[in-house]
Each structure stands twice: as C-alpha cells, then as structure tokens.
Design a protein around this nucleic acid. Structure first.
Length: 547
DNA sequence: AAGGGACGCGCG
DNA sequence: AAAGCGCGCGTCCCTT
C-alpha cells in the first residue's frame, strides 16, 4: 500500500496482508478523511463490506480512465492501455500487494508502479480539465462504491407476496417443463380461435403464419400491431403474451434463482451504458415489472422511502440549454401543463409527445408534426438537441454537461459516409449513408440529454449516500441486510431517476428530507443558480407498489 | 451441443 | 398505437 498526500506525492509504502486489509481500512477511515485509489471498486470493495467495513470515498481508476479516454487531447497511447484500465479487469492477486490489485502487463510485481503511473496520468489530465469533470469523476467513483453496497445490502423482497401474484395470475406452480394452468388454457383457446390445433404460441414464425391464414394484415406478432386488428384471437393472444412474459421472466424459477434470504441482489454496472446510465446483470434488475413491486417490502420495523424525479430529462435539457422560457413553464408545476399554458401545443399529451420527440429525434407521425411549434417557443432547448444531432450526423463527438463524451463513429460508418461523396456512388449507397447519418444523429441528440440526466441522478445519489452515512444507528436491526447496513438507512435500489431507501421506521422523516435535500444539491452542483427545480414524487411505504 | 442473431417485451 | 433514444433477457431458430 502506498500513502500519497493531497498533491499525489508519495509519503510511505507498506505491505498489508490480505487478511489484515479490512481492519487496516477501517482504522484509516476512522482516523482521517481518506480517498482510496484502486483499480476497480467492484473487485476490491465486496470483501471489505463482507468484513463489515465501509469506505467513504474512492477514486476508481477503471471508471475514470473510461471517462478520460474521450477527452480531446488524450494521449494517443492511452488507447493501448485500454485492456488493462478500462476493460473487464483481471482477478485480484492473492499476494499481499494490498491496495493496488492490478495485474500489470509486465507482471504482478509491477502492479503498484503501474497503478501509481496511471493515477498520475489521470491527475494530470484532470488538472487540465474543467470543474465539471472533477464533479463527474467524484460522482462516478461514489457510484462505484454504491453499486457494490446496493448489491451487498440487497433489495428487500417478499417471496410470499411474489408467489401470491404468480398464483393469482398464472395458477399454482406447474411441474417442471409444463405450462402453468392458466397459460395452457389460453394456449388451447388460441389454437381453436386460430384453427391451428398444433400451434405453439411461443413461436413467432408459426404464430405469424397462423395469423396470416386468418387473413390478418400483420407483419409481425408484436403487441402493438396485434392490438390494431379485429379478430377474436387477439384478446386471447395478448393475454397469453402478458402471462407468458410474467412466467418466463419473473416466475417461480426467477424467484428460486435470484431471491434468497429475503433479498434480491442484482449486480449493478455503473456507466454500463455509453451515456453513463447504469446497467445491471443478473435477474433483470432494471426491468422489474410494475406488477411485482408489491413484493418489494421493508423489513419489520423498517420502511421504504421511494422517490422519483418528475420529468427529469426535459428539465435537464432546459437547464443545460439555459432556456428560461422552458424553465418558466416547468416551475412549480407539471412541465407538460406549462408547455400547454405557453400555447405551444393544445394538450398535455401533445406536449409530452412533442418533447419526447425532440429528445429522441422523431421526424414522422404526430410527434414530428408537433416539433416545429416547440422550436418556435423554446428555441434554446430545441437548438441544443438539434445541434447535437447535426454533430452526430457529421461524425463528430458530443459531450454531456459534465464532460462525458460520446463514442466516435467506427470505421465502417466513416467509410460508408466517405463512399457516398464519391462521384460514382450509387443512389443506394447515398441513401444508406444518409440513413446511417440520421441514425447517428438521433443517438448523439439523445446522448447529451440522457447522459446529463444520468449525471444529475448520479450526483443526487452520491450526495444522498453521504447524508445517509452520517445518520445515527437504528434501534431495530434489519439483520438480512448484512453487517454494514443492518442498523443504518441505506439505498436499496436505483433506476435511472428513481431511488428506494430502506430505513428504520424512526428515520423516515430524516431520510425523506435527505432525499429532497440531495436533489436540490444535485441541481445546484450541475446548474448553479439557473432557476430550474427537480420536484420529487416521494412517499413512505411498506411496499414499493404505487399507492 | 453450443453459439449467435432476430424478435419480443419489460424498464427508464 | 407507435413513433424517436438507451438497455437486459428469454425464446426461437438457424448455423457451425
């Protein structure tokens, strides 16, 4: 382990045996503010939490490396170091290399030197970067810690409530290999209604053929298209699809695999999405269906504080663009109603449609039709996303408010564009280049908004995490949360613009206040005094189901 | 038998 | 209704 001062100068070195590492970290955390610098929080932190040791701050070299790679002027050799610093990482060595767990290309003995060199490069790059990037790096690293903490604590999950949903929807649990009773009944009815005795409704190919034999004008078996045609089998099929989805995605097998000891423990992957949004692996944590939220239940004596931000992305867009007209429409009320009041559109539904279209790049249909009106009323906000789209179409990179950059186009894309400008380019080649350019424009258009919204949410989360950590211990244990979280309010779930805090009943007031204070802080940190607010829908409940 | 692409659908 | 963005994951179905 190496001690550094605030300027990154080396103070001392020591070797700490792995079994002594948690106690060592715990001692440091108590005695002085410490920022742990390590390769990968997802590999280093679980063992600390398992030993009951929580870390306040870190610098996650792997995640920061990925952010810095996109900066202009980045050392071109940085990309050669990608495999080591930004890749999936490598198993930590068992040897007592302590803090720095990197296995460098030149072998384990060089790990600390490599780690120090990477940290120095990152400090150097950050020293030249604007303030926003420092905030992003701090928030990203806090998120890396939180992702491990949420996995360790888990989301309180009541298997009996889940089973009650399955029983009500699907019938009793079937034997292995068989469909649940209600699903099998629907399949039988479907075979009759489509006059196809051998039909397997799970096969899109066979299903489509059966629908065509009935004379139905559908090109796919998708829900949307089906709902638009008139046939007795449609209602049956839609119900079959709904239940089949519940069964295969979140049925008894899911419960057996992913819920243990009253907790659902997904793996969170910070910045797993190019925009900086989090991804998850295992159990589909980011796709928990609404109907199963009744199974998210606080422990006895504990409660859930469930909070989400209303219309996060449009608010972020308006602040990022410094669009005071849109900010005025958003202030203290439903943003979409504000747009109606401005006379840009005539209904709330149209306002939502138009704004989503602006952020996603809709060109056709209702949404595309409404956008010109929006451009007239909110030229700054619309100008920002339009400019991002143009840059993307031109093959340039865009960046979020704090400085996360979009990926650059790959060689195939560039060649397609170049080919289209040559004198002998075929019409089809030109059309293809044009289509791919527009595709990329929609991506960069959305990138700046989605990515900045992710930064707001990450800042909110990081700030909230700190506030919760400073709260006192509870009287009632939630023993299933593990040693670090059994007596302290903790973030149990995060999904883009929503957070669920699991906390002792006696702390719900403080926690609710902390959730709001953190949202206010995030707004100020990103947008300073610009007059936009981020209203929360927050509630205290035993379950995460919508009230 | 395993791998991968397409599809479909859940979430924001 | 879907559309226009970003995902994960289960199933089918074809290739190797």
């Amino acid at each position: 382990m190496v001690d550094l001062d605030a300027d990154g100068r080396e103070l001392s070195r020591s070797v700490v045996a792995p079994e002594e590492f948690p106690a060592h970290v715990s001692e440091r955390e108590r005695s002085a503010p410490t920022r742990w610098v390590w390769h990968d929080s997802s590999r280093r932190y679980p063992a600390l939490l398992a030993a009951g040791v929580r870390v306040a701050r870190c610098h996650d070299l792997r995640l920061v490396h990925r952010i810095l790679l996109g900066l202009e002027g980045t050392d071109p050799t940085a990309r050669q170091r990608d495999d080591v610093w930004a890749g999936e990482g490598v198993p930590a060595p068992d040897a007592g290399q302590a803090l720095f767990d990197l296995v460098a290309p030149t072998g384990p003995t060089a790990a600390i030197e490599e780690t120090l060199a990477e940290f120095a490069r990152q400090r150097d790059a950050l020293g030249r970067a604007r303030a926003g990037l420092h905030l992003l790096v701090a928030a990203e690293s806090a998120g890396a810690l939180l992702a491990v903490e949420m996995h360790t604590a888990g989301l309180p999950w009541d298997a009996r409530a889940h089973e009650a949903v399955l029983d009500a929807e699907l019938g009793s649990r079937p034997t292995v290999g068989a469909r649940p009773a209600r699903l099998e009944a629907l399949a039988r009815r479907l075979r009759e209604e489509l006059d196809d005795p051998g039909l397997n409704p799970d096969s899109p190919t066979k299903l489509l053929r059966a629908l065509h034999r009935q004379g139905l004008p559908v090109e796919s078996t998708g829900r949307g298209e089906l709902a638009a045609v008139d046939h007795p089998a449609v209602a049956t099929l839609l119900e079959y699809k709904r239940l089949a989805r519940l069964w295969t995605a979140n049925g008894w097998a899911w419960l057996d695999e992913w819920v243990a000891g009253g907790r659902f423990r997904p793996v969170y992957i910070p910045a797993g999405v190019v925009t900086g949004r989090w991804a998850s692996a295992g159990g589909g944590a980011l796709q928990i269906p609404r109907g199963l939220r009744v199974a998210v239940r606080a422990d006895p004596g504990w409660r859930l504080v469930v909070a989400d931000v209303a219309q996060l992305e449009p608010r972020v867009l308006c602040a990022m663009a410094q669009d005071t007209a849109l900010a005025e429409a958003a202030r203290g009320r439903d943003l979409y109603e504000g747009i109606v009041a401005d006379g840009a559109v005539t209904s709330r539904e149209d306002a939502k449609l138009a704004l989503l279209g602006a952020m996603y790049g809709a060109t056709t249909g209702e949404s595309g039709r409404l956008m010109p009106r929006l451009r007239l009323t909110y030229p700054r906000a619309m100008g920002l996303v339009d400019a991002a789209a143009r840059r993307g179409e031109d093959g340039e990179a865009v960046s979020t408010l704090l400085g996360r950059t979009s990926p650059v186009p790959d060689g195939t894309w560039l060649r397609t564009q170049a080919r289209a400008t040559e004198a002998d380019a075929a019409a089809s080649e030109i059309a293809r280049a044009r289509r791919e350019a527009r595709d990329r424009g929609r991506f960069t258009r959305n990138f700046v908004v989605q990515g900045t919204a992710a930064e707001w949410a990450l800042t909110w989360l990081a700030d909230l995490r700190g506030r919760l950590a400073r709260m006192p211990a509870a009287r009632v244990d939630a023993t299933r949360s593990g040693p670090v979280f059994s007596r302290h309010a903790h973030i149990a779930f995060f999904l883009h613009d929503e957070v669920i805090v699991h906390c002792p009943e006696e702390h719900v007031g403080e926690v609710s206040a902390a959730v709001r204070a953190a949202a206010d802080a995030a707004g100020r940190l990103l947008f300073g005094d610009f007059p936009v607010d981020f209203p929360l829908d927050a509630r205290v409940a035993d379950s995460a189901a919508k009230a």
